[in-house]
């Protein structure tokens, strides 16, 4: 990660800005959303995951310590993703297989909830996303 950040430093012009956007996992609870109403169905299996991303944080701290970048601003927002079916949610979670899995029990509850909600029901996961804005310090 430090090497990748160093490569970005190299390709940036003097005074260039690096924007680091990344999710601060774990996910929020899986919800059933119907119109303005949302109901928690339960949490994904994220037992093997540490909240946040310590390795990425350490890499940012290291390039800051080396004088490559200066942290200028940090912001955050909640990003919501929606699915019409459990199958689509499973497909999405394939990209996160190493940090989050959909337990069979929760998948069953989600199917039942969607069926009862009718065509207006959707599944939702919220992700807390952190944005770091860093400015290149010319070498």
């Amino acid at each position: 990660m430090v090497h990748a950040l160093s490569e970005m430093w190299r390709t940036l012009a003097a005074g260039g800005v690096l924007l680091d956007i990344r999710p601060y996992l774990p996910f929020g609870p899986l919800e059933l959303v119907r119109g303005p109403e949302a109901r928690s169905l339960g949490r994904l299996d994220e037992a093997e995951f540490d909240p946040g991303d310590p390795a990425a944080d350490n890499a940012v701290a290291e390039v800051t310590r080396r004088g490559l970048f200066a942290l200028r601003h940090t912001s955050s927002f909640y990003s919501s993703s929606y699915w019409d079916s459990v199958a689509e949610l499973r497909e999405y979670l394939k990209d996160w297989y190493d940090v989050a899995r959909l337990p069979r029990r929760l998948a069953g509850e989600a199917r039942t909830a969607l069926r009862r909600a009718g065509s207006s029901g959707r599944l939702r996961l919220k992700t807390y996303v952190v944005v770091n804005v860093m400015r290149k310090i010319p070498g």
């Binding site: 990660m1 012009a13 003097a14 924007l19 990344r22 990425a56």
Partner: peptide
């Protein structure tokens, strides 16, 4: 080197 004004790490660090 120094080709860009901004670099965006999109959920990828």
């Amino acid at each position: 080197s120094e080709r860009f004004d901004a670099a965006v790490l999109a959920w990828s660090l």
